[in-house]
Design a protein around this nucleic acid. Structure first.
Lengths: 121, 121
DNA sequence: CAGGATCCCTTCCGATACTG
DNA sequence: CAGTATCGGAAGGGATCCTG
């Protein structure tokens, strides 16, 4: 287990990993790719508030980290498929733990926010 | 279980929760507060690359979400203690799942990054 | 179809100075 | 000690246009 001490080190390499996972678009794209591979346009439609720029950029970083595999089919017009690697698939379990927590605790958090905001006059 | 479809909704409330958890400083502060309560100055020294501004700001948002409890002791000089709430404590388990994954897969990710960067000439 | 390139606006965030 | 307030640079990210 990693101690908080290591994570508090500004140069801790695990930070760079957690930063990626914590990224909004990375998180959503990984979950979207979980059931099956998707093409570029499919992903854009699936996550309909992502801009083309961020989609490309996020997919590149996921590919760089070895979480996503990119396959180009030299057809006309070109077709590109994105799929989770084994590494990417292994990330699903801890990610879903977090989603399950957020889902379960959503009422508590929403309530806390409302009380806090009400107390600030 | 939350389906990806809901998360892909721009207005999905779970997104706002995940955004907080994914936040770099929130994540570190929660882990730092895990073993015991800390005072403001303690936290600043513990996470030594956080600015005073971000520390205050992040603690406020954690308090607002009901994850952290803030107690003021009316001494001179003033003393303020931050501690995890039951809700905050319950978040530790899924968070540690992610940290454990990152720790375990760090070599694979580092290797993938190196290969990717090398391939880009 | 799957991007690359550019412009530009907003938000983040660190540094600094000040206060009860 | 534990903040608040303000400024300004850096980065994030959307909109648009262009191409193999």
């Amino acid at each position: 287990m990693v101690t908080p001490r290591e994570l508090r080190d500004p140069d801790c390499p695990i930070r760079s990993v957690l930063d990626r996972i914590g990224d909004k678009w990375s998180f959503l794209l990984i979950l979207t790719l979980a059931p099956r591979p998707h093409r570029f346009g499919e992903l854009r439609r699936a996550v309909d508030d992502i801009s083309q720029r961020m989609l490309t950029q996020t997919l590149r970083s996921l590919q760089r980290d070895g979480l996503v595999d990119r396959t180009v089919f030299p057809t006309t017009p070109p077709s590109v498929e994105y799929r989770l690697t084994a590494l990417g698939l292994s990330l699903l379990e801890p990610m879903r733990g977090l989603v399950a927590w957020a889902d379960l605790q959503l009422p508590a958090i929403t309530g806390a926010r409302a009380r806090f905001d009400a107390a600030q006059v």
